[in-house]
Design a protein around this nucleic acid. Structure first.
Lengths: 229, 229
DNA sequence: ATTATTTCGCGTCACCTTAACGCTAAGTAA
DNA sequence: TTACTTAGCGTTAAGGTGACGCGAAATAAT
């Protein structure tokens, strides 16, 4: 057997799919590359692992230094290892996705550097590397996870109405959900708590404001999707 | 930004959780290490990625050369990156799990080298590295996957009875499932096809033999687990 | 004020799934 | 034959879910 250090190692990177929700639109944060390869093309933010970092540290560093975000929800997705995925050489990428509330960081349209931009997930440009594949894995994970786990709260303000939560679900899942059944399921699951306050200033009836219930019992609800043949 | 090759890279390895099912027992294949670190302790089979390999290639190579298995079901689990997980230095491990039918490879108890052994998942020894954690992730994945995806067939012979399939599910999930309801769900889902033949030589009524239906429609069944508080 | 309009919150009901369980058939052993 | 065990099919009551009705609350127009 070879000695431990004789193995040649590929480079190890993380690539991040950063989701944000704003104005009834689910968006992904993309970077316009200034270098080859894929110069002037849009790609996911990413970077190489430093020897003393965990993968999560690497993600946090990228989020903070490149995008000015901290303390965001993050989850490991999958590890992408196609030998040809990076034309510079062998690079293994561990994909992560993050959910952020853009309004928390003041990064809404227009306020960012022009090499960083939110794209509606329904209208993505052509992406460099294998980032289309990583993005699709992330969107699929988000869609399946939201059906049984309260992951959507990361995308909303601390206080929100059931209608806002409902719109978020319809937007992510890209399907209509009955308003009244959605309300019943979410409430029965105990995912949210009524704060007693109401959202003011709307032109119709003022809806009650809820917050996420952090002490929920798990696996207590399930949003069902239509049959697929 | 640094040039591409200036980054120091950790070593990249795969660790394999190989599940086998035999005599109503779910087992995992472990190796007794002959070298430091963790000399004489049990660990998961694993190995380092070669530059021209995919991760799946690495897994296949380990399965073939160390264990004599080929063409097995395999799935990527998760990537483990604790900086202290390997005392020799920084090693990132991509966990995979595999499902095999031990009788296909003639590796039942006693026929293997004494540094390779099947262990009942309920009675594992102390494992080296962070392999306990990897094993637990694999078992959890298997348990949740079997509830909605026909993954159990990899562990059985090509032809099997519903009772055998039922016992496999009870063994993996570690819970009682009503025999008659299980039968109905599996049949309704179209996961299995009756072959018309029967298992002979049993002392009671001879059950019908089924085989896996490869042309199944997806997401068509769901085994529910009892409520958890 | 009254009315129109829209969203919000609660309730109803029919249908389907599911868990629990009964019953008979098929095979072996006494 | 009888006893016993596993296999295969059926029944039923309870709970969950989808579809949808209706009045309440808020605003704007008459």
């Amino acid at each position: 057997m070879k000695a431990f250090h004789e193995y040649k190692n590929p480079s190890l990177a993380v690539d991040l799919v950063v989701f944000g929700y704003h104005d009834n639109t689910l968006s992904v944060l993309l970077l316009n590359r200034k270098e080859e390869p894929f110069k002037d093309q849009w790609t996911l933010p990413g970077g190489f692992l430093q020897m003393e970092e965990t993968l999560r540290d690497t993600c946090a560093r990228i989020l903070l230094t490149k995008l000015g975000m901290k303390e965001v929800f993050m989850e490991q997705l999958y590890t992408f290892d196609d030998p040809a995925r990076d034309p510079r050489g062998r690079v293994i990428a561990v994909g992560y996705y993050a959910l952020i509330n853009p309004s928390k960081f003041g990064i809404v349209a227009g306020t960012m550097a022009n090499d960083v931009k939110w794209f509606d997930v329904k209208q993505l440009p052509v992406l460099g590397f294998d980032h289309q594949q990583i993005f699709e894995a992330a969107l699929q994970r988000l869609r399946s996870k939201i059906l049984y786990y309260p992951v959507g709260f990361e995308l909303l303000d601390e206080l929100f109405t059931i209608t806002e939560l409902h719109e978020l679900y319809e937007c992510i899942l890209q399907m209509k959900l009955d308003r009244r059944n959605f309300r019943r399921k979410i409430l029965d699951a105990g995912y949210i708590v009524n704060t007693g306050t109401k959202r003011e200033g709307l032109k119709n009836r003022h809806p009650e404001l809820y917050k996420f219930n952090k002490h929920l019992k798990k696996n207590s609800f399930h949003i069902s999707t239509p049959e697929q043949e």
